[in-house]
Amino acid sequence: MVTTAERVAPLRVKDLKSGIKPIWCPGCGDYGILSSFFQAIINLKLDPAKVAVVSGIGCSGRFPAFARVYGFHGVHGRALPTATGLKVARPDLTVFAMSGDGDAFSIGGGHIAHAARRNVDITYIVMDNEIYGLTKGQPSATSPPDILELSLSGKTKGSRKGMVGLLDIHKVEEALNPILMALAYNASFVARAFSGRPKELTAIIEEGVRHKGFSFIQVMSPCVTFFNTYNHFRETVVPLPEDHDPSDRMRAMALAMEPNKTYVGIFYRDETRPSLEERLEEYRQQLSPTSMEELLARFTR
């Protein structure tokens, strides 16, 4: 029998690769997230057998299969509740939830408010490519309204046209601001990273795991095939101002609303709130334990 204590050699990235080759297109931003995820586990010295990754549907949904940790590839939009059930049932595990923008902000959009409200200790990484990639290029809740023009103008170099009709009619809708939304929901850790800047990304994932509560991390992860935004983000991504105090939620909201800038870094962090599991345990401790015998006796005449 192999136990954790016997694991003497430090983990290497190749120990964490499952051997299943990712289905992602060459150059996809998601590779960067996978690498940073591996690096964060190594840096945090986590035991892979005590790590679980829960995902939904889409390119992001494939994530767990590529890592040698416990994984759960569920239904569309339900990564958060599935991960919540797992985490409260097994607080000893380090639990990640992985979604794309479709999974997180459309079909599963209702769950973010509740994960934030409960402050369940999950690191939620949204691999946001601002388009539905797996289904071949429909607009998502984070696609800019002018996504079709951007696609045709050559600004998103190298990418193919997605579904032109749907991309065109998308101009009648506005894009969601996920950071602002997470701040409004009072998520206790709100951060943004760019998959093209792996060092920052790794550091933010590590901070997200260290944070005892719900960590919301939006990772801009370009879709090289249908909406190649690498150049756009290389131009617009800037670190949050050095003087930004992550306990200042109002300032964080103001920064999240600044146009033409994609700030990366930790917008907001509140370390004072206990996590859901801690609260549940505290609640249990206040109660007097019972047994089946005692419960049945209450119903005996």
């Binding site: 569920g74 599935t82 919540t84 059930g85 797992l86 509740h114 549940l280 019972t290």
Partner: peptide, 27 residues
């Protein structure tokens, strides 16, 4: 909770059932 277990009032039925699946996956 008095038996050492956990109960969550979920935000909808889909969340309820997937939470149960997550917990069961956890053993």
């Amino acid at each position: 909770p008095r038996m050492g277990g956990t109960i969550i009032q979920a935000e909808d039925e889909i969340a309820a059932v997937t939470m149960a699946i997550g917990a069961s996956f956890g053993g």
